[in-house]
């Protein structure tokens, strides 16, 4: 105890306290806009379709993966070195994991989709932690009165959000939200160029839909039309109800896959917004570490669940089969 409270440690503690409290007072940070839908980048569209910042982040993740793949497989050697070694190790690790989850045949068949999900999600998740994500963008007047608008400091052509809040007229006049309409209010909000791709439900839902569609296709391929017996079983009341439950559970899988990934990463993002807003320095560091782990974990969970669902789909329901035969015998 005495050693823990030595002069040096106390001094370090004091310095840390000064940094955190001083930071709070001297360098207050504005709270970025927190909203579920991805922001459309103003003035940027392709063929009339607006482009969101998560779409750009998705493309960035794609490019990152492709560059890694290019360098890893550029000169494949019998004795692997550097990046090739890492990539081979990762793929082999996933191959073994997939074999444990779904067996040899399914593992071989579904490894690409599992690996692609993992790579895309983990790269997208980890990009979120790179400085510049969510913090560089275009300053706009707020569209809705719920947004926190700030004053800006102009440094040449660059505007920097200050922590000075601008009260919108509607809020000041007692919350007549409808009167503001779509017209821009006072002050500015930041529309970042880049936002973690997995904080967009479109991405997570797209992955979930592809996986569950693939599950149905693989099931039909492996078992023929008999695959659908799992859902439409009219041999009795109970099997019929079970079939309906199975149908709902397929939908449930889509929803849970979609929102698990989205929710975890979005929550992490909010955490990383809010902590520096409360205490600008130091305190956010452990949360970055946590988010690195969460980013990996969610990518792994999505990939593993995809493999499990796919592996289950190609296995026929042995119990139901036997029951059917027994009935035919009578």
């Amino acid at each position: 105890m005495r050693r823990l409270l030595s002069g040096r440690n106390l001094a370090i503690l004091a310095i840390l306290l000064v940094i955190t409290i001083g930071g709070r007072i001297l360098f207050p940070i504005p709270l970025p806009t927190i909203q579920l839908p991805a922001e459309k980048i103003p003035g940027l569209s392709i063929f009339g379709f607006p482009i969101t910042n998560t779409l750009i982040a998705t493309l960035l993740a794609d490019v990152t993966i492709l560059v890694l793949v290019y360098f890893a497989t550029r000169k494949m050697e019998m004795v692997p070195r550097g990046l090739q070694n890492v990539v081979e190790w990762v793929i082999e690790w996933f191959m073994n994991l997939a074999k444990d989850l779904a067996g040899e045949v399914s593992a071989r068949k579904f490894l690409p989709i599992m690996m692609t999900i993992f790579l895309l999600v983990i790269v997208a998740n980890w990009w979120e932690l790179v400085p510049g994500f969510d913090s560089i963008g275009i300053l706009e007047h707020p569209h809705s009165p719920n947004m926190r608008a700030y004053e800006i400091d102009e440094v040449g052509p660059i505007g920097i959000l200050t922590p000075r809040l601008v009260q919108s007229d509607e809020q000041a006049s007692g919350g007549e939200h409808s009167s503001g309409g779509e017209e821009s209010g006072k002050g500015y909000v930041l529309v970042p160029f880049l936002r973690a791709a997995t904080t967009d439900l479109n991405l997570t839902l797209a992955l979930a839909l592809v996986v569950m569609f693939w599950v149905q296709v693989s099931g039909v391929r492996a078992l023929g039309l008999g695959y659908f017996k799992k859902f439409f079983d009219f041999r009795g009341v109970i099997p019929a109800i079970v079939g309906i439950l199975e149908l709902f559970s397929e939908v449930g899988k889509i929803i849970s896959l979609t929102f698990r990934l989205f929710g975890n990463i979005f929550a992490g993002q909010v955490l990383i917004f809010v902590i520096p807003f409360l205490i600008p320095f130091l305190v956010v560091l452990p949360f970055y570490g946590l988010e690195v782990f969460v980013g990996f974990m969610q990518a792994l969970v999505f990939a593993v669940l995809a493999m499990v669902f796919l592996g289950q789909a190609v296995v026929s329901h042995e119990g139901g089969h036997e029951e059917h035969k027994a009935e035919a015998g009578h």
């Binding site: 497989t73 793929i91 690409p112 692609t116 839909l209």
Partner: peptide, 27 residues
Amino acid sequence: LGINGNFLIAQIINFLLLLFVLQRFLY
């Protein structure tokens, strides 16, 4: 929630393309 048909289709296409490319050049 921000779910939008166009973006959803864009993301699906993006994933399928990535899957195809990785299948071809990585796995």
